Computed example of a mutant assay.
Amino acid sequence: MERIEAISMTTFAYCRVSTLDQHTGIQEEAIKKAYPDAVVRHEKASGTTRDGREVLSLLLDMIGQGDKLVVWKLDRLARNMNDLTGIVDSLESKRASLEVLDQRIDTSTASGRAFLQMLGVFAEFETNLRKERQLAGIEKAKREGKYQGRRRSIDAEEVKRLKNSGMRPTDIAKKLGIGRTSVYRLLEA
């Protein structure tokens, strides 16, 4: 008699916010309503890239055959097509799937995969439009003399004073908690 092993499916949920003052409560509530037994993980990190998102990386490493990754909204997972495609490819290579609750997308179906790709293109387009509007606003403010840029975070006079007292650029950088390149740039200016 042949023994058949059942594949146990685990549902992993990923909740992300960008800033420390934001909370993942609404995301988790929606996910727990759909999947009460989901393993929920939270992350506070920018969604513009996968870099620096250790919780997401850990989840993608943990997910195996038959498992599912669930997110509340697509922008909680990825903001550009490269990242989205990479995540979906990673899941598919493990025979796992992605579900986006808000848009009712499930990559375990052909229509779900197609719809996800279309939404990803539009999400990236929206992000690019937002960046263009921001840059246009900054240019306008510069023309009107209203844009001052970011405040200097390094005291150039202190860097010069320390250099004049005989301190080496590497030591200045360590003392002030800044990059050595910044010290050299200020000294050359």
Rank of each mutant, 00 (worst) to 15 (best):
S108T: 13
G177F: 12
D155W: 05
E124Y: 01
R95G: 09
R150M: 11
Y184F: 14
E157V: 14
L135Q: 13
D171F: 01
A141Y: 06
L187R: 11
K175D: 00
S153N: 10
A156K: 15
V183N: 01
F122S: 05
R133P: 07
K175E: 08
Y184H: 13
R161W: 01
R151D: 11
K146F: 11
Q117E: 09
R180T: 13
A123G: 11
A123K: 04
A114C: 11
A96H: 01
I154K: 03
K160D: 04
V159H: 03
V100L: 06
K175S: 11
N164Q: 13
L98Q: 00
T127G: 06
A156C: 06
L98Y: 03
S153Q: 15
S153I: 14
L187E: 03
D155G: 02
I105D: 00
E126L: 02
Q148I: 11
E139V: 06
Y184G: 01
G112N: 10
I154Q: 03
E139Y: 07
T170L: 08
R113Y: 10
D171V: 10
A141R: 14
L176C: 02
D102L: 13
L187P: 04
T127M: 04
G166P: 14
K163N: 05
Q103E: 14
G120L: 05
R161T: 12
S182M: 05
Y147I: 09
M167W: 07
R113L: 14
K163Q: 09
T170N: 03
E126M: 09
N164Y: 07
A141T: 08
F122M: 13
V159Q: 01
R113G: 05
G149A: 06
E144A: 10
S182N: 08
A141I: 09
M167S: 02
I105M: 05
Y184V: 05
R104G: 12
F122Y: 12
E158W: 01
E144V: 03
L162W: 01
L176W: 04
T181F: 00
D171Q: 12
E99W: 04
L116M: 15
N128E: 05
T109M: 06
E188T: 11
Y147Q: 04
V100Y: 00
G137Y: 10
L176G: 05
I154F: 03
V121F: 06
A123F: 04
I138T: 05
L187F: 04
